[in-house]
Design a protein around this nucleic acid. Sequence first.
DNA 1: CTGTTAGCGCGTTCAC
DNA 2: GTGAACGCGCTAACAG
Lengths: 346, 346
Amino acid sequence: MPTLQDVAILAGVSTATVSRTLNKPELVEPVTRTKVAEAIKVSGYTRNEAARSLAMRSSRTIGLLTDNFASSYFAPIMDETVDILREYGYYTIVEATGNVANNIDPGKQRRAWQSLISRQVESIIVLSLLVDDAELENMLREFPNTVLIDRHVHEDSNRCITVDHYVGGQLAAKHLLDNGHRNIAMISGPENKPDANLRGKGFIDELLRQGCPIKENRIFQGDYTITSGTNAMQQILNGKDEVSAVFAQNDDMAAGVVNACYTAGIKVPEQMSVVGFDNSALATAVFPHLTTVSQPLKSMSHSAATLALNLSQRHQREGVLPNPQTHFMPALIERMSVMDIRPKQR
Amino acid sequence: MPTLQDVAILAGVSTATVSRTLNKPELVEPVTRTKVAEAIKVSGYTRNEAARSLAMRSSRTIGLLTDNFASSYFAPIMDETVDILREYGYYTIVEATGNVANNIDPGKQRRAWQSLISRQVESIIVLSLLVDDAELENMLREFPNTVLIDRHVHEDSNRCITVDHYVGGQLAAKHLLDNGHRNIAMISGPENKPDANLRGKGFIDELLRQGCPIKENRIFQGDYTITSGTNAMQQILNGKDEVSAVFAQNDDMAAGVVNACYTAGIKVPEQMSVVGFDNSALATAVFPHLTTVSQPLKSMSHSAATLALNLSQRHQREGVLPNPQTHFMPALIERMSVMDIRPKQR
DNA sequence: CTGTTAGCGCGTTCAC
DNA sequence: GTGAACGCGCTAACAG
């Protein structure tokens, strides 16, 4: 690997000049500029970011901490964030804790996080459902330049991107009610997850408010996995309870619900309506395409990136970007999995 | 951020000693060792990987280049590879080119790749369907320490992990034939992709070999997306051609096929059998669960990681690992989307 | 506009 | 077993 030094000699200038043509070309004579450019080309020089970071006391990189690549509902956020950050000349390094659903390993979480810090990231965006609250608190304390997406540990709105899951739950309830459903079941996400709890609470409250309280025995526990959705639905079906609609607190479980229905010979939406949550890739992969509650991932990514940038060293130099929106509202996406069962009027 | 220096002062020793206790603890007196450990703890020291890379002339990191996080069939490979590499004390830094299906941007590809190189990765694992062959050749030339997963540009088996797609196609054909299907259609992947072509060729050849050649007009062009599967299947259905089974060259398209069927009131597998390819997460999300051809992703990841390690600087020092298997065979996973239509025997 | 010089934080000889 | 000194590749003053 050729170094700045090599290029300098080749171009017959000093290393400082090469560095300048690379970083502040306007400060260097056009003639030497091309001379240097030439030397860079023929030598195949690539700058050493490690050395650069050291010298600048700034890595110009931000870290993204996620659970795992395979089951991330948030893959679109990752793509978007990386893109935005790159526009601002920032690197993103993404680390996965390797946690999968119920198999979480705090050791790996910490190592992944440590790895980001030792790479001198200027801030960290946490995009994880599986790092628990206590651990998150620790991370926040040890490394304050942290932006949380959809986690509520810290109340500083400068560090948290949030979505109103409660409203999301309400949206789901309203939609079902509007379509004439009265016998409604719900499949919850993991018990200890605030987002899941909020979705449930919004749903239940709205049902109650509209005079159609949900029955206790129509609430089933799931854990956001497809199979948990399938299992819950089987219970519902076996119960011989006359349910006409189900709200699954995420799309994976909703897909499981659809599976259970068809396996049992129940048609969706003709005999069973289902509403999901997240508007994940699955929603348009299964039949029928899922009516679901979507989060504005793109906007959220943008805010997260902006917040991370503002927290970084850039802050002190080029000034901060205007503070972006941090609280977002979900929206109901109407597709094919809910049927209007109101009596036809003529 | 505290530095080695800070720790040294705090512990009342030299920086060299701190460095040693960190990297070669056996060379330092137990007493001072604990003294240093203490100082590290109270100061909250984290080592600066940038400085370390510089001094060691080695980053101990390998790069993973992929298309994007959102639509990657290879997410499991990424998770697995990162895990393995970490076991060997190696960092993985993953970059996405941001390319999506038909929207590929060579500029972004190159930037993502450059970014890896400037971070001094010791080798690169390419896990991409969307970087084209010519570009791949360039990368290989400029940076030879590259491992290719499921791409065949370079014939060096030390650098290529391959899967036998041809055999995969055969497997799909055999399975359909074994279940009594004779009127079979196929939906191809992108035209210019060798993997897709091979899957198709294996399928067609096997059908021919068993005396049941596929009709020209039963081959439809897709592009690996769900909607392309749906569209192709609609054509098949509209054609009033008596097809009893469809082979989709990947699971996404197979999901699209199932969608089209149910939309048209055709039951899968009762009225239409379908076989997919990849054994992706989708395969067990849709109804019915897809019978599909799977690639041994875990083994492939292991090989890729090993190859990357052997190519890295580690090579010259600690010696290389035994060369792993590089060519893999797919397997048919039987689930619920194919029906046996052979006449019942008594 | 360009060259000289001095570190950034760490690993590594080489003396002691 | 430990410390002093040097250098990795680069940027950032400061002169000129």
